[in-house]
């Protein structure tokens, strides 16, 4: 038993962190002088594909690197830290689904030549045997060829054109492109239900890992600022009112990180406990992301309310990921209904 990364796993973390530091620094998300905010991350996919990151956890016979959910999870913590476009989730999960039923699609996704958007329900979803109907939000789907749908009951891959009645919306998280659309008895290219295999659990786990990285980055930003910002003649981090807020952020991030690691090891074994532990991870990690995002703004004071520092980005992204496949209320209702895992 060991819940710390191995040397090889740490090398993967360092590689991804190094790549993102060079290619996706948080400053890229500062608005230009017109306040216009595009999405700068589409250019990342081919580069990440070159490094093998997009197919990291896909089995080798499916065209991926064949690493486990543990390594995949570690990379997602880094994606969260850098606030990489959550379109990446569509690519990873879409590649896993397609690798079984549509290898050419999987190859295109892992090669970075085609993007995968995300779909998440706006209300009730009707679903039987791989056919889905309902109203959805599409995230980062504008130039995508495929769309990955996550509901609390299933995970499914579609062609983008399967979604109709599209209308663009501005997102609260303004770096993410958003639209409304619907499916009418849309047939998935590949799908699986929450009760079979680990596809659905993997989605919750990777969302949890992303949320963990986000919570850690929000903490780091708040701590850095509390060390240098002075009031009453000393750094504000010396005041318990601020210090204890930072401590609470550190606790939340640690709780999330531990459960995410634990769940990743369980999932890597294809264990039946994967659903339980991934849900637990999602609940504590999204909680940490929401709390740390909000607290980070308060620690910054007025500057935290502006678009000139990164603090606001964390809370907005946290709200967005909360809703992917069902928000905390939905996840908790699922979790309290699940059988105990002791």
């Amino acid at each position: 038993m060991n819940l710390l990364p191995t040397e090889e796993q740490q090398q993967i973390v360092d590689m991804v962190r190094g790549f993102l530091a060079g290619n996706a620094p948080l400053e890229r998300l500062r608005p230009d002088k017109f306040g216009q905010i595009g999405n700068p991350d589409a250019a990342l996919w081919p580069k990440m594909a070159e490094l093998g990151i997009l197919g990291l956890g896909v089995p080798e016979d499916g065209g991926g690197l064949g690493l486990s959910a543990v390594e995949e999870t570690l990379t997602y913590i880094e994606f969260g830290r850098a606030l990489v476009s959550i379109g990446v989730l569509g690519a990873t999960l879409g590649a896993h689904l397609a690798a079984r039923d549509a290898p050419d699609v999987a190859a295109a996704i892992m090669g970075g030549s085609t993007a995968v958007g995300l779909a998440t329900p706006r209300g009730a979803v009707e679903h039987s045997d791989g056919r889905f109907s309902g109203e959805f939000h599409l995230i980062e789907a504008d130039e995508a060829e495929f769309v990955l749908l996550l509901t609390s009951e299933a995970i499914a891959l579609f062609r983008n054109e399967d979604f109709t009645d599209r209308s663009a919306r501005l997102s609260m998280d303004s770096h993410m492109r958003l639209m409304r659309a619907r499916l009418d008895d849309g047939k998935a290219l590949g799908w699986s239900s929450v009760t079979e295999g680990v596809d659905h659990a993997r989605a919750n786990l990777l969302i949890a890992a992303y949320a963990t990285g986000l919570a850690e980055a929000a903490l780091a930003g708040a701590v850095d600022y509390a060390k240098v910002r002075e009031q009453f003649g000393k750094p504000i981090g010396s005041f318990q009112a601020i210090k204890h807020k930072c401590a609470d952020m550190a606790i939340a991030a640690e709780v999330a990180s531990c459960q995410v690691s634990f769940a990743s090891v369980i999932l890597a074994k294809d264990s039946e406990e994967s659903r339980f532990h991934a849900l637990a991870a999602r609940i504590v990690a999204v909680d940490a992301a929401l709390k740390n995002g909000a607290t980070g703004i308060q620690v910054h004071g007025a500057i935290g309310f502006t678009a000139e520092v990164e603090a606001h980005l964390f809370v907005k992204r946290a709200h967005l990921i909360d809703f992917i496949g069902g928000d905390q209320r939905v996840q908790k209702a699922q979790f309290i209904g699940a059988d105990a895992v002791m």
Binding site: L3, V255, Q259, V341
Partner: peptide
């Protein structure tokens, strides 16, 4: 599932599950 107690209990269940993971990390 949709009661306030169920929601809070789910949160506590997730957190106490995470405590076990924290214990494992401390041991590691």
């Amino acid at each position: 599932e949709n009661d306030d107690i169920g929601q809070r209990l789910a949160q506590l269940r997730a957190e106490v599950t995470a405590v076990r993971a924290m214990t494992y990390r401390i041991a590691s």
